[in-house]
Design a binder for these strands. Structure first.
Lengths: 153, 153
DNA sequence: TAAGATTGATGTTTCAATCTTT
DNA sequence: AAAGATTGAAACATCAATCTTA
């Protein structure tokens, strides 16, 4: 088997991808926390629930959309439930499963967090890109994100 | 103060950046672990040390290069030292500081890890991009990574 | 047996406080 | 007081095993 090796430009792009994501994410996350809100992972999970039909998803679906491993989703739900933002309900169609339902307090939190999150996205990410460049960036990353890989994380 | 809001394309690019990084990183990290190696964070730290003059850096320098918070660097060094890959030495020029020196075993680990890491980069990232696209991606992300921000993480 | 979900034990990251030297 | 570095306690993530239903 011939081993195929990334070229110099690919390695540099890989490093840039990691640096950019970590730098922007940690800056935005810090701003959101400084405003007294929970971590962005909570936002992402609640957002998926609010978008879902009937404001509910099963853990396995949440796992696929968040790219989280199963046990991580399980414990994230524990925390969201502890904060009274979601509720676990038995699943009608599948006895093994559960429906995770977002509660009004969860919807309210989403609404209050978005302006802060949005401002962070603009300040730490959007400010560095024109609209056209942002669109091009999303296009370039498309094939990577499309890879419907197993959610090891 | 007028609040400036990211446009639709920027928000989509932000989501794509996060998805792509997490997906590719977790896939590569899993491959590296499956081959019996420690996490990629160890690789990054050892690589910075090997590149440094005299094969040594102070924790504060490592912090800046890795975009890690100070206490995280401190504990990463604990683990590397526990694995006999680096050594802490008193710093001659500044009594508060230390020099973290990479040991031969650390250099050896870097050498053995790189082929596996490299193959992962190609399989989970490079395979989705042409060389030209990779170069363009790095260029787009440049202004974000250049932001010499505080290493909150 | 396999899929959905959880749990105990363990490792890592984070927060806030601490210690030392400048 | 400020900078470099570490530490205890708490939050979170990960691994391997477990439990339940399909």
């Amino acid at each position: 088997m011939v081993e195929i090796v990334p070229d110099e430009a690919t390695v540099m792009a890989w490093i840039a991808l990691n640096r950019a994501q970590r730098l922007a994410f940690s800056a935005i996350d810090a701003e959101v926390k400084a405003a007294g809100f929970p971590p962005l992972a909570w936002y992402d999970a609640l957002l998926e629930l609010r978008r879902a039909k009937n404001l509910a998803l099963r853990p396995v679906e949440l796992e696929r959309r968040l790219l989280f491993a199963q046990h991580n989703v399980s414990r994230l739900i524990d925390r969201l439930e502890g904060a009274k933002l979601v509720e676990r309900r038995p699943c009608a169609s599948d006895g093994r499963g559960q429906d995770i339902v977002i509660l009004p307090a969860g919807i309210d939190l989403l609404t209050r967090m978005w302006p802060v999150y949005r401002a962070g996205i603009q300040r730490h990410f959007g400010a560095c890109l024109s609209t056209e460049t942002a669109a091009r960036l999303a296009g370039i990353l498309q094939p990577i994100t499309a890879g419907g890989r197993e959610g090891t994380r």
